[in-house]
Design a protein around this nucleic acid. Structure first.
Lengths: 224, 224
DNA sequence: TGTACATCAGTGAACGCGCGTTCACTGATGTAC
DNA sequence: TGTACATCAGTGAACGCGCGTTCACTGATGTAC
């Protein structure tokens, strides 16, 4: 009988624990054979359990995949947020940190990074709300960095309610365009690097990245 | 009995024709359900033929997929080469044309573009030589544009024999780094655009692309 | 502390499906004399 | 022009596989009295 701090009923705690185990095994399969290799039956076998047992924890294979994508969004966001969690730095330095964190996460978790971008991008009208929220929250970190560049759009970028207002403001925001350009370049570099395009050509990926980041930082400095 | 111009034996011509038909149907399936939806049996059914029949034309599903990837590389390369097939232009203008052609092809053939970059990047040591050649040939077009910027590396970039010499020269070439940066940005932009990331955020993709291309062209002008 | 009951994790069989691939074969088609 | 033969496209059955998911069930586990 565990002491204080254990508020949830035991069965619920158990459920959450098993869900985590399932996700871990699923990520192993992802790393080993790609997203389509994630299979309910194979996961069950690896957990020493029979197939249908997992339906106690995930209603379908689709739900499992969705959860993995959301987790990846959140992980990447937290990695970036953590990198920026330092005492006051100017925007240029923050962009450098952000870029480094983005690349580092993708290098550490290449399969999860691919999972993020091989899935269709979650639109506003997507049936999966949590997914869209996770994606927007990630972009919120980038916007946060460029935040003080333009005081007209200076509100908390993660806690919106009305999406239409948000859309209108975004479309007209210089910062948002800058953020997207930043993200676009990071994604281009990182996905080529992960795919092996650079090393296959005998190129020094670190040097290339340095150059790209320097260009980005310059642009941010010019805008500020 | 066809007249002059028909040199190949009829059976061989027939084989090639059927191979093309198979590829067309395979591309339809790719567009409809992703690369993993390409299935020998389903293609056969759609052609009004029984499954094993296709093994007369492709030795395996893998061979079919490889051929599709090679075709896509070649198509994209030809689209870019064609765009540059104008009377003498300076490097800056050529970069603009190249970028526009790259994006246009990806927009017209989004599924084939994805097919290219979701496949593992063909390295030198890849067992599939034709694949690696097709990929290098594509890069050759980009290098051709930046060609005259650096006379030290000025040789025909597509007709190499010795790969090790090629590697060494590439690693040391400023132009090659510029070409890769160019490609990296194009890929980043285009893959986000295809994925729907921009429109999902209410952004004007054309305007973003214009900005990115202008930055690229500036950099090329500065280098020349 | 002990007993009765409700909850729910996990089982095993089954359904229906589609896949890639092999094999021995039939029958048409082009070719050589 | 006519006949005999070799080539080869396509068939249908079969193999073995794995998948997601449903269902009725057993048995353990936590809970309420």
């Amino acid at each position: 009988m565990p002491a204080a701090g254990t508020r949830k009923p035991m069965r619920e705690r158990f459920r959450e624990q098993v869900r985590e185990e399932v996700k871990v095994v699923a990520l192993n399969q992802l790393a080993a054979g790609g997203a389509q290799a994630i299979s309910i039956n194979a996961i069950a076998k690896q957990l020493g359990v029979s197939g249908p047992a997992l339906y106690r924890y995930f209603s379908s294979r689709d739900e499992l995949l969705t959860v993995l994508v959301i987790d990846a969004y959140n992980d990447l966001r937290e990695a970036m947020a953590k990198a920026l969690d330092t005492d006051a730095l100017d925007a240029e330095a923050q962009v450098r940190l952000l870029a480094a964190a983005y690349r580092a996460w993708a290098q550490e978790e290449p399969h999860r990074y691919e999972l993020l971008f091989k899935a269709p991008f979650p639109g506003y009208d997507a049936h999966a709300k949590p997914l869209a929220e996770a994606a927007r929250s990630l972009m919120g970190v980038v916007l946060g960095v460029l935040h003080h560049l333009d005081s007209a759009t200076a509100e908390k970028p993660t806690a919106y309610e009305n999406e239409e207002v948000l859309d209108a403001r975004r479309a007209n925001s210089e910062n948002h365009q800058l953020a997207v350009a930043l993200w676009s370049r990071l994604h281009g570099f990182v996905s080529l690097e992960i795919g092996g395009g650079f090393t296959a050509m005998g190129l020094d990926a670190d040097a290339l990245f340095e150059t790209e980041v320097r260009v980005l930082a310059d642009r941010v400095r010019r805008a500020s």
